[in-house]
């Protein structure tokens, strides 16, 4: 995958999209070879690898009381771009909706400056307008920071909007699909 390239991954549920992402993030034992630039997955300690190749899961969990404590550094621009007010960092995690959690999980991940992204249905809990907002913001972030990105998506229209390449998991095979540029 090229720097700044978004590759979409789709397939029926249970086909192993999330497992593929988990293997690339090295959260699951696997037999493949994964490289970031010229560095092998095995040449870095597990947590260093995951700092660089960051996965954002579909279901997120939070452990501190407020949103801000989960962020590595303050992210006022990102909060604004995703439609949060300035004081969102002080919000109590227990009162977040699933859509808010999903967007904040993206910000939480990007506050750690990853070099590559693995996004597992990043807009699954969002309405159409917010989905477009998140897509725009992610695309500009990815282009600006030149992060190669694996993006698991369901909706064909989203794939057409964001993907440079699209692969569909079909049984045990990965089939490349047409994408309009």
């Amino acid at each position: 995958m090229a720097p700044g390239q978004i590759v979409c991954l789709s397939g029926p549920s249970g086909s192993g999209k999330s497992r593929l992402l988990r293997a690339v993030a090295d959260l699951e034992p696997h037999g493949g070879v994964v490289r970031l630039g010229d560095r092998d997955q095995d040449s870095l300690a597990g947590h260093r690898w995951r700092q660089s190749v960051m996965m954002v899961p579909a279901e997120t969990a939070w452990w501190f009381d407020t949103v801000g404590e989960h962020l590595h550094k303050p992210m006022p621009d990102a909060l604004g771009a995703l439609g949060f007010p300035d004081d969102a960092a002080e919000w109590a995690v227990s009162r977040l909706s699933s859509g808010e959690k999903q967007r904040l999980a993206l910000i939480r991940a990007l506050s750690r400056d990853p070099q590559a992204l693995l996004l597992d249905e990043p807009t699954a809990n969002l309405d159409d307008d917010t989905t477009l907002q998140v897509e725009d913001w992610l695309q500009s972030y990815i282009a600006e920071h030149q992060c190669p990105t694996l993006w698991v998506a369901h909706r064909e229209d989203q794939i057409q909007r964001v993907a440079a390449k699209h692969f569909r998991i079909d049984g045990a095979r990965l089939r490349e699909q047409e994408v309009e540029q």
């Binding site: 993030a25 959260l27 597990g46 947590h47 260093r48 995951r50 700092q51 660089s52 960051m54 996965m55 954002v56 899961p57 279901e59 997120t60 969990a61 939070w62 452990w63 939480r108 991940a109 750690r112 990853p114």
Partner: peptide
């Protein structure tokens, strides 16, 4: 029980000691 939370913390690049510290 907190598998998801521990894995979320791992995904953010925390060490295993941080991830299961609590």
């Amino acid at each position: 029980r907190q598998r998801q939370l521990v894995e979320n913390r791992l995904m953010l690049g925390q060490t295993w000691i941080e991830a299961c510290g609590d």
